[in-house]
Nucleic acid binder design. Structure first.
Lengths: 242, 242
DNA sequence: ACACCAAGCAGCAAT
DNA sequence: ATTGCTGTTTGGTGT
């Protein structure tokens, strides 16, 4: 355990990435409060002082501390603790480490940024470039615009010069998508002093209740998908699989 | 590298938790598509076949595969790849492993569930038990109720027997909170055929625009907080700090 | 399954 | 720093 304390303190000062596993108990206090009784977990401490703690199931960490936290190992009699504090965020964590299973610390070189495709932004770009996919005669004016009424995905005129707000969803549109659209439409009506502004949800699908609310408000739905390049990845049988 | 392949295959069949670091390139195709050029990353494969991949910064994984994915190591000439597939979710990942930095596999025993306090649910429970914190004469009828209009945090009558919908937010209420409240209020008005239903946002704070929208709709704001036990955690100077 | 919603959401962009 | 919003959101709960 003394070796562990030396190792981790050294690693933290050197800005290495630390991974260890231990049997431990975790207390957290900050935006909420949590307690996790004894069990084996995986710990990851990054050079930016992010701490992520994983149980044996699920994608999300069970506990974590955000970047720029301060991590310390403390001996208290027979017990070993790690404390993590983030004064700025008023967050505190205390981990009683009962047993260390393994420890690794190493420098990690990685200056790369992930390149992501098929997002809602890609979708609004694509529809901006191909307005006929919304409807014949649609003339886009702007996309991804931050207005004081909110963040409007796609905005333009229809063939009758009526203003149209388009809200894009990369998946199934739900009630929240419709209320969001409605908020934009109403704000624009009010600010421009015009009676008629159309609202369109562009998404691959829409939930039943959302469609009902859409109809109640005389908005409309247009089936559309975010674009993908569909490059082949090893393990995929066919490109057409999804 | 051959040893690595044996180790990882063995670990995966035994249901151990695998952690390794490698220099690699990552391609993903599924709900979206991504590409991440060569760099050092930490890999975590859990007994439930969740894969989580971390870069040296931030809380969130840069890439991941959800539980029940299938992970395989493949040699292709001089290159080593790991493929992860989840047929059910139609998700595919391919990782070209250039160099392995370290590897660990170990059984992890952890049957514990995190105990969390200070959630929105705790807040609505507390306000249900202490209705005077909303306003004098408020009589709650239900809390956390799933209706076909949505999920209503707190519902009751005010001192004048007017129906009141309360939407709780554990942190600052925003525009979405107000539109959510408005949706519930309108649906209840319509379904019950009554003209007046009040709406209240209960939250520690509310954003400026949200407050304006709240006033426009003649709803009201009540300052309230989720309850916390505020137990002491090592590293916290005083209980009163937050 | 779908639907809806909270989250210690995280991360990002614009104000 | 605050606001608003997307996300390969994740995770939970109820229908």
């Amino acid at each position: 355990m003394d070796k562990f304390i030396k190792q981790i303190n050294k690693a933290l000062t050197k800005g290495e990435t630390v991974v260890f596993s231990s049997n431990c108990e975790i207390k957290y206090s900050g935006r909420a409060e949590s307690f996790l009784p004894d069990g084996d977990r995986i710990f990851l401490i990054k050079p930016d002082k992010t701490l992520v703690i994983h149980q044996p199931e699920g994608s999300a960490p069970v506990n974590y501390m955000k970047a720029n936290s301060e991590h310390k190992i403390i001996r208290d009699g027979n017990e070993t603790y790690m404390t993590s504090t983030n004064k700025k965020l008023k967050e505190y964590m205390e981990i009683r480490i009962n047993k260390l299973h393994f420890f690794n610390s190493s420098p990690q070189n990685d200056g790369q940024k992930i390149q992501l495709e098929g997002t809602e932004k890609d979708m609004s770009e694509y529809l901006y470039a191909h307005p006929e996919l919304i409807e014949a005669g649609f003339k886009p004016l702007s996309r991804e615009e931050h207005t004081k009424y909110g963040f409007i995905d796609l905005f333009g005129y229809d063939k009758n010069k009526t203003l149209v707000v388009v809200e894009c969803k990369r998946y199934r549109a739900d009630l929240a998508a419709v209320t969001q659209l409605r908020r934009y439409v109403e704000k624009i009506k009010k600010s421009k002093g015009i009676k008629r502004v159309r609202g369109i949800i562009a998404a691959p699908e829409i939930s039943k209740n959302a469609l009902k609310m859409l109809n109640d408000w005389e908005f409309s739905f247009k089936k559309a998908q975010p674009p993908k390049r569909r490059k082949r990845v090893r393990g995929q049988k066919k490109l057409g699989e999804f």
